[in-house]
């Protein structure tokens, strides 16, 4: 039996996520510019950029895997999005969708790396190596933050998490989970690829890292993927720590809050080298995470 309403809802959510994701990317650039006392590009600039990349008259390809990488990344981002409860709408749901989403949000990076490695550019290889190291480094605090959350609420279901938070107050008001929030926020910076941890696409060192060979329509696909990913990640954060949302406006405001924390942190800190990042991740966020886990037992 085909449920037309559900399909229309899913497509609507996708279009909404795409537009809001692009606007978030624009807000990111605009806010950075305002902090540096510049005027900055218009908020819809990422949409123009994507259109321009789509309108390129040639796209160099390095074979099937190179084409497959961005498509895979975009697909995974969309799947992650459909697992997250966005304003009472959740297409897929399982008993452990918290874990599913937490790992689906990291897989797109692997898809980009798959495509980047097949291009054979040395800068791509260096970027991929850095990306994998960052992922290894951030797993531990990321896991600890989620363990603390799950231990406190006693559920792996995202919809149930939202319901519990709306009954008993947001996660962030619980002292132990406030610590988990700090840990998750640090990891979030690396998930978004923003400044203290933008070692993967360090533009001044290894010229965009994995993205160095991508151009034209491939790059447009990656931009689209980034927009969906940004929306999914901010929504996931809002669901975990700010009590989810019952309507889209509520969700938008919470996502904006999360995004602005990330932007402000990103615009004042310089970039870590990869060994510094790994050392940092395995020291302070891990210690705070273990304290949070112990407090919730």
């Amino acid at each position: 039996m085909f449920d037309w309403r559900l399909i229309l809802d899913a497509i609507g959510i996708l279009i909404y996520a795409l537009i809001v994701g692009f606007i978030f990317m624009g807000i990111e650039r605009k806010a950075m510019a305002r902090i540096q006392r510049r005027i900055g590009p218009p908020i819809y600039q990422p949409i123009i950029d994507t259109l321009k990349l789509l309108g390129k008259k040639e796209s160099v390809s390095h074979g099937f895997v190179y084409n497959f990488g961005p498509v895979f990344a975009l697909g995974v981002s969309i799947t992650a999005l459909l697992f997250i409860p966005i304003a009472n709408f959740q297409l897929f749901s399982s008993n452990a969708d918290l874990i599913v989403v937490a790992y689906l949000l990291e897989v797109p990076m692997l898809g980009i790396m798959l495509g980047a490695m097949s291009s054979g550019n040395p800068y791509s290889a260096l970027g991929v190596q850095r990306g994998l190291l960052t992922m290894v480094a951030m797993q531990l605090p990321y896991g600890l933050a989620i363990i603390a959350l799950v231990q406190h609420w006693g559920t792996f279901k995202l919809s149930q998490l939202v319901a519990l938070q709306q009954l008993q107050g947001w996660s962030i008001t619980v002292p132990a989970l406030a610590l988990a929030f700090i840990v998750f926020d640090i990891v979030f910076q690396a998930l978004l690829g923003l400044e203290p941890f933008d070692i993967i696409t360090a533009p001044a060192e290894i010229s965009m890292g994995p993205m160095v060979e991508y151009g034209g329509k491939h790059a447009a696909l990656l931009f689209t993927q980034h927009a969906v990913q940004l929306f999914a990640e901010t929504a996931f954060f809002a669901v975990l720590f700010f009590g989810g949302a019952s309507n889209l406006l509520d969700l938008f405001l919470k996502q904006l809050l999360v995004l602005f924390i990330a932007i402000f942190v990103a615009s004042i800190y310089p970039r870590f080298t990869i060994d510094q990042a790994a050392k940092f991740f395995w020291k302070w966020p891990t210690i705070i995470g273990i304290i949070a886990v112990l407090l919730t037992v």
């Binding site: 540096q36 005027i39 590009p41 010229s207 160095v212 060979e213 790059a219």
Partner: peptide
């Protein structure tokens, strides 16, 4: 690129990768 003339107003951006650049 910096605050005085700020070419990012017009969407111009320095990009290190030649494949993406115009």
């Amino acid at each position: 690129a910096t605050a005085r003339y700020d070419f990012e107003r017009f969407g111009i951006m320095p990009n290190p990768a030649p494949r993406m650049a115009d």
